[in-house]
Amino acid sequence: MTMTTAAAAAGQIGRARYGSISRGRRRALFWSYFFLILFVIFFLTPPVYMFITSLKSSAEISAATNPWWVYHPTLSNYIDLLTQNQFLIFFRNSAIVSICVVSITMVVSIFAAFALARMRFWGSATLATGVFLTYLIPESLLFIPLFKTFAYIHDKTGIELINHWWVLIILYPTLTVPFATWLMIGYFSSIPKELDEAALIDGAGYIQMLTRIFIPVAIPGIIAAMIFSFTVSWANFLYPLAFTTSADQLVLPVGIVTTLIRGDVYAWGQIMTGALLGAAPPLIIYAFLMDYYISGLTAGATKG
């Protein structure tokens, strides 16, 4: 009897306390949702506005009606751009450059990270730190000397490196390789030593160890590094702006900015459509591989 009343009392107290906490939580939850909605509005306004404008005809844009609403939605901007030869060339250049850069980056960084994480050699620890430091050197410091070097190479050997889209395949690895290596070192060091010892005992060589154990185990890291390299090489703006000028050598971001803005005439419907199409590949990858994307983002600074 006493037991049950005590239990009931305890239950009541527990419920009462629980009730107050849950009320507090509900209020906190309400405010969290409230402010999160405000932030989402702030964060999503530009892309949504891009989309709204991309559905408008130029007549509707210049009519100065409500800019936040489409009265006569039309796909003419999309049709215009996607049937324009120039735009498709930008797209092709961007795609080839990004795919090549991702492949080069992954080959270089996987081998290097394996060597630095598992097989020590003279100066390997310094090199690992050096890789991290080079990741911190920004492109805006490097483009001037690189531009001059390429001009010098042209003078000496006659190989024209400036104003060719493929030169970006040489340039972008400076941005992607250090970080991808750093990321892969982190993933490879987290693989237990017992695994490679077992492989060594079974008679595996280093290459076998890498292909049979490290690469399969570190697949999430590899995907994260690939996503990173792709996003960086797709989005880069400074290098193509400095190194390419002819309309058929441009990649997507620079192509949209320089060819669609002609003097003071802004074809805003087409610009927004182009920007949206240019943003689409990273967004699609992000939509499907969000968890890898985020793990790559956080691992860069937290794994050390």
Binding site: L44, P46, P47
Partner: peptide, 18 residues
């Protein structure tokens, strides 16, 4: 909330310019 980070900055800046 991560979408602004994913869009290439050159593209989203165009939207801001507009």
């Amino acid at each position: 909330l991560l979408i602004p980070w994913v869009i290439p900055p050159a593209m989203s800046t165009l939207a801001w310019l507009w």
